[in-house]
Amino acid sequence: MKYLNIKKALAAWQALQPLSEKDRGRLSRRFTVDFNYNSNHIEGNTLTYGQTEILLLFGKVIGEADVRDVQEMAASNVGLKMMTEEASVKDMPLTQNFIRTLHKTLLRENYTVYRNLPGGQQTSYMIHAGQYKTRPNSVITRYGDRFEYASPEETPGLMADLVDWYNAAEQEGKLSPLELAALFHYRYIRIHPFEDGNGRIARLMVNFILTRHDYPMIVVRSRKKSEYLEALHQADMEVGPVPSDGAHADIKDIRPFMKYFNELVATEVYNDVLFVSEKDENVWWYDGERIAFRTPNYTRILNAMRTEPTLTLADMKELTGISVTAIQKLLDQLIQKRYVERGEKDGSWRVFVTQ
């Protein structure tokens, strides 16, 4: 992985085409959970990876879960499906209406946010689903300075510029799909057109552009959030603090983010290649990470759980030939890593690693 580059990753991906229906289904299920979990987790959603998988693939809620987080995750998946369907119509230009509709889908409805001011007073404001912001927004960077996004007055014009630029640049073909996706993301974030949900929309739009050009979709992993934010910050340092400059940045202006983005896509695509092509029964995957178990006993236990979720330790010993003591030690490791979980009510095993 250290010497991997985007050209080699994409070549390896193309060499696998066309994928079988089975492999397309495996990748789709994996991406559905990974993308929704990570994109929402970056923004503070508290559902675990396992809860996300059960919710999105089986429509069930397990364990304790915040109702709003559950609704947010379900809406995110609807937005992902909407984006994928829209991207498949390749001769249709991008519109502001689609972006606003996507935002409306993610947020579902208007809601009020309450904040405590430094003096102890409470203030509130309305978040508008599917509408551009009506109040200024900014962020305090990890360096302690305030970074302003486009004003509410600037936003409609800048969004019109962004969409017009994208449609023209796509037709012109001078920028690669990766450059288009990275530059769209950066310009969009500098506008920050909505009061909430901008990061989630930006990551959906990156995949809109990639899949529109027959590239695999990618996941920004929440465990690597700091790298993602630092790449954006470094690009901001080159572009400067004026929002309209950021909203009209050129590809050469965002070199730090472009470097990050190329490495991200190379890693994600190469992992897709491994996921599809590697035939090793002791290799499993969890949230984009390849797990090569050192002993086949892990695989024996995991396969036993998948075959019969209600197994007891004695049952596992009977099926696998592993001692109960050894099984318990291996289970402790699997549970600690959150690769498996046992249901509190029915006692059945849930396996969250996949092959």
Rank of each mutant, 00 (worst) to 15 (best):
L117S: 11
L117A: 10
L117P: 08
G119H: 09
G119K: 06
G119P: 05
G119D: 11
G120F: 14
Q121M: 14
Q121V: 15
Q121A: 15
Q121E: 13
Q122W: 15
Q122T: 13
T123P: 03
T123C: 02
T123M: 05
S124P: 04
S124F: 15
S124R: 05
Y125S: 07
I127R: 00
I127N: 02
I127E: 00
I127K: 01
H128F: 12
H128T: 09
H128A: 10
A129F: 10
G130T: 00
G130E: 00
Q131L: 10
Q131I: 07
Q131G: 04
Y132R: 09
Y132F: 13
K133I: 01
K133A: 02
K133P: 02
T134G: 08
T134I: 06
T134W: 08
T134Q: 10
R135A: 10
R135K: 10
R135V: 11
P136E: 00
P136Q: 01
V139W: 03
V139M: 00
I140F: 04
I140P: 03
I140W: 00
R142W: 12
R142M: 12
Y143S: 15
G144F: 13
G144C: 14
D145C: 13
D145E: 12
F147I: 07
E148Q: 14
E148Y: 15
Y149K: 00
Y149E: 00
A150Q: 04
A150F: 02
P152K: 12
P152N: 13
E153G: 06
E153C: 06
E153P: 04
T155K: 04
T155R: 04
T155A: 10
P156W: 02
P156R: 03
P156T: 04
G157W: 05
G157A: 09
G157E: 08
G157C: 00
L158V: 08
L158T: 04
M159A: 03
D161M: 06
L162C: 03
L162M: 03
V163L: 09
V163F: 11
V163G: 06
V163P: 05
D164F: 01
D164A: 13
Y166D: 08
Y166N: 08
N167G: 12
N167M: 09
A168W: 14
E170H: 03
E170M: 01
Q171V: 07
Q171L: 09
Q171S: 10
Q171C: 08
Q171D: 10
L175S: 11
L175D: 11
L175K: 13
P177D: 07
E179D: 04
E179C: 02
L180Q: 11
L180H: 05
A181H: 01
A182C: 11
A182D: 02
F184T: 14
H185L: 07
H185K: 07
Y186F: 10
Y186H: 12
Y186T: 09
Y186R: 09
R187P: 07
R187C: 01
R187S: 05
R187K: 09
I189Y: 06
R190A: 14
R190Y: 12
R190P: 07
R190L: 12
I191C: 04
I191M: 06
I191N: 03
H192C: 07
H192A: 05
H192W: 08
H192E: 06
P193L: 13
P193E: 11
P193F: 12
P193S: 12
F194S: 05
F194N: 06
D196T: 11
